[in-house]
Design a protein around this nucleic acid. Sequence first.
DNA 1: TGTACATCAGTGAACGCGCGTTCACTGATGTAC
DNA 2: TGTACATCAGTGAACGCGCGTTCACTGATGTAC
Lengths: 217, 217
Amino acid sequence: MALIPSHVKEVGAVTTPRKVQAAGTEQALKDAARRVFARQGYLNTKITDITREAGRAAGSFYNHFSGKEELLESLLTDLFAEGDTAVADEEHNPDFTDRAALRWHVAMGWHFQRRHLPELLALRQAALVSPTFRNRIRELVAADSAHLHSHLEYVRAAGIPLPGKPDLVISAFNTLLTGFAQEWLTDPGAPGAPTDDEAIDLLTDLIYRGIAGRPPV
Amino acid sequence: MALIPSHVKEVGAVTTPRKVQAAGTEQALKDAARRVFARQGYLNTKITDITREAGRAAGSFYNHFSGKEELLESLLTDLFAEGDTAVADEEHNPDFTDRAALRWHVAMGWHFQRRHLPELLALRQAALVSPTFRNRIRELVAADSAHLHSHLEYVRAAGIPLPGKPDLVISAFNTLLTGFAQEWLTDPGAPGAPTDDEAIDLLTDLIYRGIAGRPPV
DNA sequence: TGTACATCAGTGAACGCGCGTTCACTGATGTAC
DNA sequence: TGTACATCAGTGAACGCGCGTTCACTGATGTAC
């Protein structure tokens, strides 16, 4: 009579206590890893540093990740996911000949760097040692680069000459933003550290002038 | 009768065969290290990678250096020495309101990065793991920064407003130059890689406009 | 609903690999007389 | 100048530490009937 065999009923409840516990531990390990990465850097971090920070046994780690690399991959998956939704939410003005539009983008980039500093630093470090992560960086840069190209179109359309090939200009802006952010965000207490607004305004001005500035003769 | 005791005579000849051999091996290890660092990165390099590349036995390494760190220090000593002589040789025009003067400086920086790429990359990597090397970077940056301040004086004197506090502007330029150089010099065969002149002109324009550019209204 | 067994998340001591570092040895160079 | 001994640069096998990874075990949760 029962159309649904008993062993299937209630299978829809994904949140069985065991899964909840496993998911909790996995998240605890990821959170702990972010903290430890931020404190001592990815390359300096031992598996046991992460498990200790998370308050779990060393062996527990391997129930969830095959190693430090896979844990980082998992953090990056979250990061890429957020990047996608952020780009999807394109209500903004794409015309880079407008300083306010440019500033909005720089601010987005700056806050993205700040929010994901642990992962991004870890990624940079991992890339030093592993071709896989070097490619991950390339992916991030490529996505951003494609995006910026469309914005620079407006500059070209306005007849303003760029200071170099678009790809190189974009690479330079990217280097500037990420480098400057990682320089100052990693040690917020450093003497002379800029406020968020100072940093964003400075970067905006540099990029805006770089794009559209006319040097005096 | 002998005014100079026999065991002292000819001591002035520093180039006794033994010392020559020792110095040769030490240099061979340093050269090998530069090559290996460039190929696989400092952090990825094992002592035995260096000795193998140099064609010496593993144990030989410790006749000359206490470890990989001391070898890097020794490379950096050479680098700082060159930096000093380069600055001493100041025949150049210090007025950054003059594009040609700025370009000369950018070219100096670019070629310095290129010439010392192995050490500079190694230093960056070592700094990830060791506070000592973080300080070495700070020294390098501070020296350069002091130098740039004097150049920006000319801009201030000309009544041109900078896009932010001088320290931050200098930090941004520094980040841009070193980041862009390390991005493109590490893989010269990369698609879209700029020639030296393209890179130097782009950086010069960006910095020049950043300093002195007037965005259109 | 109750009982007996299976599965699973987590534990931490132990194992073993990779690599830095040591050290007894060799042959060549330097020194004493 | 010749001889006997000391010193030194270099060698590479062996040792041992640190850390990643495993695995037998525990107690709790899930399943069968």
